[in-house]
Write a protein that binds this DNA or RNA. Structure first.
Lengths: 209, 209
DNA sequence: GCTCTTTTACCTGAAATCAGGTAAAAAAAA
DNA sequence: TTTTTTTTACCTGATTTCAGGTAAAAGAGC
């Protein structure tokens, strides 16, 4: 079986580069190339596609949303994201929205080949550098951030559930004033202006749960 | 080379079950079994370990935190998470904290074997059911949730950055009262009590960015 | 034993949010 | 073109948060 493959990238040079790499691959047939997501969305409505290699930074509609939209209608299409540089949260978001893998564009030909074959085989794949990005950062990112104490985490968790100071006090059998103090201490510890910013910060850094 | 492997699970029955599966595997040597994370943390300080299979739901310290702690000091140890049932965010969190893979306990022997060998080989692996969990749910989960309008998303984004109503109004060149109306509409749309709960909800459902 | 951190608790006043209402212009969809 | 959704805007009052203090008891670490 030959996999009908589409490439989406807003840089024509990158498209031809990837196309060049892929022509060497057995059973990968490049059927179309696009420079934007909307053109791709039109195309897949009328044509059979098995594999999509897409840049994440695209004009109009970004790669994450594009992937989500495609997967909702065509869950069987294998989608691999690509970008020149990236960060952890972007990669995770792409996977959470149905992506089957993520490759940095500086990956070697062998990495590309490996990842594509494995993705077709049903695996979720990452190029080497992506793997380090999604797992290593915590050693630098999170180590310097002082953690929440147990009580503070309890309170932060209830805050993220929309509880008011009074409700939290009732919930934890504490004085209203005590909870108020904890709230202020947490905000000051991370220099946050209010609970909204705090919750966003804590969730992005995986400090709740 | 034989991989020195440790199993951590608070159900002795599960430990023996997994141990049984693994004895059949070439070059996997089970050197120790633990029922809690603290015992494991002590052990790895004094003994060489290559691979850890750990339950995610553990007493005292949970699997995600345990994985994070271990990886900070011993990034080369391969850690695979396991649980009986799971949800997307938990799996993603585990991976973001350095985990090399995630397997549901109902996976077949072949899946276990495959995942373990691939993880040792440097891949990030998921058992079949985990793959569907992390990618499929969006088609049911998110489709029924009404989206934010463009203006609403602008405002929600600024809220997540800790901006006050007045600051948002200045930022978007709107009246204070207009922003106030948008805030209320967003809260009512998702039946949220306050911005804190709203931000948590939006971030967990990838509705910001 | 001593020290530092955490948890508990209280007071006050300004600022901001939340909840209820209404309504009209503009834009998008049917 | 008509209808619906979105965006804009105003009013009021109760509730809540935020920021500034202080301080003592309990627990963890040295």
């Amino acid at each position: 079986m030959r996999y009908r493959t589409v490439i989406v990238d807003d840089h024509p040079i990158v498209i031809s580069g990837i196309a060049g790499l892929l022509t060497d691959l057995e059973n990968i047939e490049i059927v179309e190339k696009f420079e934007s997501g909307v053109a791709l969305l039109d195309y897949i409505e009328d044509n059979k596609v098995d594999l999509i290699l897409m840049d994440i930074f695209l004009p109009i509609i970004n790669g994450v949303d594009l992937c989500k939209t495609i997967k909702q209608k065509h869950p069987k299409i294998v989608i691999i994201g690509m970008s020149s540089q990236s960060e952890r949260s972007l990669v995770m978001q792409f996977i959470q929205n149905g992506g089957n893998g993520y490759i940095l564009k500086n990956a070697s030909f062998d990495e590309f080949k490996d990842c594509i074959y494995k993705a077709i085989d049903g695996e979720i794949v990452f190029s080497e550098e992506v793997k380090t990005i999604i797992s290593q950062p915590l050693s630098e990112d999170l180590e310097r951030i002082p953690g929440l104490s147990r009580r503070e985490r309890d309170i932060a968790l209830l805050l993220s559930q929309g509880k008011s100071t009074q409700e939290i006090a009732d919930n934890l059998f504490l004085s209203f004033l005590t909870v108020q103090t904890h709230r202020r201490n947490i905000l000051q510890k991370y220099k946050m202006k209010n609970v909204a910013e705090l919750i966003a910060f804590l969730l992005k850094n995986n400090m709740l749960n």
